[in-house]
Design a protein around this nucleic acid. Sequence first.
DNA 1: GCCGTTTTCGGCCCGACTGTTTTCAGTCG
Length: 583
Amino acid sequence: MPDPTNSEIAAAFDELGDLYELDGASIHRVVAYRNGAKAVREASGAVAQLAAQGRATQLPGIGATLQEKIVALTTTGEIPALEKLRAKFPPGLVEMTKLPGLGPKRARRLHEELGVDSLGSLTEAATAGRISELKGFGDKAEQALLEAVAAYSQAGPAQRIVLHRALAVGEELLAEIRAHPTTARAELAGSVRRMAETVKDLDIVATASDPGALAQAVAGLPQVEAASNPGTNAVRIRTHSGVNVDVRIVEPGQFGNVLQHLTGSKEHNMALRDLAVRRGLHVSEYGVLDDSTGVTHRCATEQEVYALLGMAYIEPELREDRGELEAALSGTLPELVTAADLKGDLHCHTTASDGTASIQEMAEAALAAGYEYLAITDHSASMGFGADVSADELKRQIERIHEIDASFPGLTLLTGSEVNVLPDGSLDYPGELLAELDWVVASVHTSFRMSKGEMTARIVRAIENPQVDCIGHLSGRKIAQRQPYEFDFDAVLEAAARTGTMLEINANPDRRDLNELHARDAAAAGIPLVINCDAHRIGGFEVVRYGVATARRAWLTPSQIANTQGWQKLADSRPPARRQQAA
DNA sequence: GCCGTTTTCGGCCCGACTGTTTTCAGTCG
């Protein structure tokens, strides 16, 4: 029996948290399981092995009890307490708590007093009017539950929005709000400001000389399908594109507190407040209350909020309770990479494969984006991406790239390929041809459903190929569309570190692959990372912000990103075997 | 259940909103 993966252990802890909550356990115990789930999910390395060695307690939030449960899950395949609770509470009861407005307390009462144990029996009880007869429930509650079940049955659990879609909506609204004559300041907040992979809704914080006028103006924007709560300090809207947006209009002197509060994350804020309480300070969106003086300090900027707590300013991308508070206290936060640090892009496509622009046009776009170099890496021969690039065609493509390169004084064009990693780990161009290229990205595009062991061996073989400079979009996941394929990330890291093979952070907002956790681990293992746009059209370099965001959320500095260097320096940094071939 | 520049016991973030209540529990972010 294979060890449980980190995500399997985390899922078990989350389920334990949900079930203990239904069981009426102390909320602190429930929170402890959820914190444990987060710690395991975000841990680098296999937590099952760590627990077997008695070292899982080194993870923040994992104590002796949770470690014991990890060991039980590893050795017996189950956790006794979890099995016991599963027998006590039907799975439909847990599903019921996913309904907005119905939490564990009231769900449990519906189960105990009416025998409700599923969405179906909940509907029956509500339709029969039995719920409104219960103490603490009324007609409104009964009606709300019926509507919640109907909405849930139709649409399922609330969908999260991929960042680029949310940002497009948010930045358009932000521009409108900033353009309003009474607006002084306005910023996006929430997970969109942290550049998270997906978001639930949008938050905007503004200050205005006439809050009421701004709120009215927001409610009347052409993008707005519906507006509610049109008070003077807040307006909630739903756009025609289906995105919910909360706009808060606050006093200028409080802007920093509210922006910090609404930017989150929830975990960051909870840890921040916990830390503040230990110093006799209480942080909320209204200010920082000092116990010793009774004074509430209001902050116009976020910098002041963090300074009051004795810590350095924390960039929004880092606010996930992944060690940033400790680093901010000790002055060891990283100097995060920015888009301006990138000097080139090493992964793009032209009409030779599935791109929509010529080499010339892509070169012009890269120059306009401020790059010094660009590798043309069309897909290799074995896949049906538009026109396959046969070996002969690649030879002609190399000549064309050289010709065009000569006419671009400001840009170095590099010959390359995004070559397929075949199921056995070999590449689909002959070695002599690959040796003529400046740069080779190897990617998996087929046979995603191999076993974990086979997929790991396949990728490791590609990494060990001295003609491969970089592995493209390592996990193959597409955010909110496709799970990553199964492979052993630790084994891949070991191989990449050993061979000097680089790993890509693909900036396509639907990919962002490596993800931020893998990117952080890879950099910690000393593996150079490359932020690539994987551009398929002349506008394709605009997605660089998502790759940079992932790198920043991975705590990465410019020195950990290979393409912050000039091309020659990057090329020379490659292992000797590879350099000889390229030369 | 975890954790420790007040603690190995006694704490554990902060506030808004809602509906059902006459002061609050539950839920949410």
